[in-house]
Amino acid sequence: MSSVASEVAESLREYAFWLERGMADTHRIKAYRRAADVAAGLTPREVDGLHTIADWQSLPSFGPSTAGFATEVMHGATPSKLTKARAAGAEPLDPGGAQLGGALRGDLHTHTNASDGGSPMWEMAEVADRMGRDYLAITDHSPRLRVANGLSRERLFAQWEEMERLQPDHRCRLLRGIEVDILADGALDQAEDMLAGTDVVVASVHSDLRGSSETMTRRMVAAVSNPHTLVLGHCTGRRLQGDGSWRPQSQFDAEMVFSACEMFGVAVEINSRPERRDPPMPLLELARDLGCLFAIDTDAHAPGQMEFWSLGAARATVAGIDEDRIINTWPLESLLHHARRRRP
């Protein structure tokens, strides 16, 4: 690949990153990422024939916008839209989370394109490196969540092998993780031996969210009591919908569930996604008062969404949660020791 093609590809990816950070339209983001992939594969001879917007637009996956962007980069200019995006990204999404966010050593809930994320593991790892993270858990979905392309046993093994290949190229420690679905009886949707091979298990309810309070409470307490569970993910399941209304949160005995989390040392996730903000503040304060541990997670499905950390950190700050109760402010060895505390 020529140096010019590399610069074009990197610039296109960077702009896609800023679009992801701002929750831009998915199709627009994919257009820039597809164009970046094409640019990255160009030979020096192919690049020599690209001088105008029309030249770039003749390539697969390049439309008027991406072709214009690439032409500016090729002629030594920084596209104005990239300059504006960099300026907007200079500050955290929520400045209220800056101080606490500075203590975060890693992210315990992220997704790749092996499941329902938008980018490969190597790109997520590169962003974690740039952010100065000490560790990054890749927590793609478990098998039964087919709508999110959940990983079978074989695909999860393959992901671990890929992780081993990538690790020498990255400063941050890549952690074997899974966001495992909590099944109807409270069991975790993955085989015991596979769970035992993970570093981080985030247990989340994704189905039958409108179950009775008694049913949901039993499911969640059973999952929290599992010795492999490290984090209880987005506990209420609430989500901001396209019309501006919230998908109703699941009903459960929050005091019982959070008391179980405190008893078993399971962290209550402070999900940083702007359309989740889960748990809501009254439940977050209840978990605080009951002595729970917490994890501020981005639940990133794309590299730019790893910037969501400040949104969760700001909510933790408002709730008055002490830094030492947030497990992803802990050093790696302390985190891993805690994750394995109840395993056979």
Rank of each mutant, 00 (worst) to 15 (best):
A31M: 10
A314F: 01
R176S: 05
H109Q: 09
L230P: 00
R173H: 14
M131I: 04
F17A: 06
W160T: 08
G118T: 12
Y15V: 05
L50M: 06
R171I: 10
T66C: 07
L188E: 04
D243A: 04
H109M: 05
S334V: 14
N149G: 10
D199V: 08
H301F: 12
T229N: 08
G22I: 06
R247F: 09
G49V: 05
P60Y: 14
E214G: 06
H338M: 05
R33Q: 13
T317Y: 02
M124K: 07
A103T: 12
C261S: 00
S142H: 01
H141R: 06
A5M: 02
A90N: 12
G97F: 03
P95N: 11
G304R: 05
H206A: 03
L108T: 07
L156P: 05
M194S: 14
V221L: 00
D181N: 15
G211Y: 05
F308E: 01
A254M: 06
V201T: 13
P280V: 13
S2E: 08
G177A: 07
L290Q: 14
K81E: 14
V224F: 04
W56T: 07
P95A: 12
F258K: 03
Q159D: 04
A203M: 09
D322E: 15
T215I: 09
Q249G: 15
D48E: 15
G312Y: 07
M163P: 05
G244P: 05
R146S: 03
D55P: 09
P227I: 00
A222R: 11
P279H: 11
R239V: 01
